[in-house]
Simulated assay, not measured.
Amino acid sequence: MTSQSTVGNKALEFLRGHARILERRLGELWLRDPAPATAHAVLDALSAYRNADGGLGNGLEADVLAEESQPLAVDFGLEVVEQVLDRVGTEDVRAHARELGEGVLPFLASVAAPSGALPIVLPSFASAPHAAHWTENAFPLGLNPTAGIVARLRLLGLTSDWLDEAERFCRAEVDRALDGGPDGHTALNIVRFLDLTPTDPWAVAHAEKLAAGIDGMAHFHLYPAKGYGVTPLQFAPSPRNPRRPLFPDAAIEAHLAELAGGQQPDGGWTVPWQPPGPASELAWRGVVTVHAARVLAAYRG
């Protein structure tokens, strides 16, 4: 059996040779040096994707290579910010993260619907290189990505009129989504939103309702299966995550075994979809390699 230190070393070697600077820095943060300087380096790398309107774009989410700011890229970037704060929570790092979060608020307010809801992508994405599964009008306003973005901005301690409106939208939309049965990606956003107030009776009741229907969700694989799908390890990337009890031990172990077996000879992991080009494929391999290595380290390291 390959040791966890070998897995991590091979992953870092892949990242250093093939990944974007963002994922190289993030890999160092998770697998080597959880120091404030490394955390600042991740946030500095993320800032390179900012535009004059305060939003994030420029292919940060590597399936959509639009230069213009996109809610999709903001969602991706705020997830990176959350990872940084999960690893390093010093006052200076939190201040740096908060500054980054404050910067995206004007952009989000400018593209949101009157309800506060956000689309995943704006129409401008269609003129840029993008993966084939991203089609116009295929991703309407909704909890994905609004709920995840709202939750991560609130965790930074931010407030704004748009955030208040968007939070009201999310609370109403969670009721509707759980009645209809959310897909895996929407469920990830719901979980993130519910975690804002985990002891609130409203959040507790909705978390229980989500858990009751989680096995039958579309685009979700409780156990390893062919094709693309969200997995329990995305809901609970560490055994200490509050959502870990949603899933049976056998499901977690099956996905960990599959994840460990997915490391390629070059040290990285592959993606089960077709990105828009070779650079995007390498970018995504960097993203999923950081995820796989940190999850394996959390559960087995």
Rank of each mutant, 00 (worst) to 15 (best):
M1T: 13
M1A: 15
V7F: 11
N9F: 08
K10C: 12
A11M: 10
A11W: 01
L12M: 13
E13S: 15
F14H: 01
R16G: 14
G17S: 14
G17W: 03
R25N: 12
E28H: 07
E28W: 08
L29M: 09
L29Y: 04
L31S: 02
A35L: 09
P36C: 07
A39Q: 00
A41D: 11
D44K: 02
A45H: 07
N51C: 12
D53V: 03
G54I: 10
E61K: 00
E61N: 06
L78N: 00
L85P: 02
R87Q: 11
G89F: 08
T90H: 12
T90A: 13
E91F: 13
A95K: 13
A97L: 11
R98M: 12
R98A: 15
V104D: 00
P106A: 10
V111R: 02
P114W: 10
P119C: 15
F125Q: 00
S127H: 10
P129F: 06
A138M: 08
F139V: 06
G142E: 02
T146M: 11
G157Y: 10
T159W: 13
W162N: 07
C170R: 05
R171A: 07
V174W: 03
R176P: 03
I190V: 14
V191L: 13
P198V: 05
D200C: 07
P201W: 14
H206V: 08
A211M: 07
H221R: 11
G229Y: 03
Q234V: 15
R240L: 13
N241R: 09
P242I: 01
L246Y: 14
L256E: 05
A257P: 10
E258W: 06
A260W: 11
G268E: 04
W273I: 09
P276H: 08
G277E: 04
S280I: 02
G286V: 03
V288N: 06
T289F: 13
H291W: 14
R294L: 10
R294A: 06
R300A: 11
G301N: 09
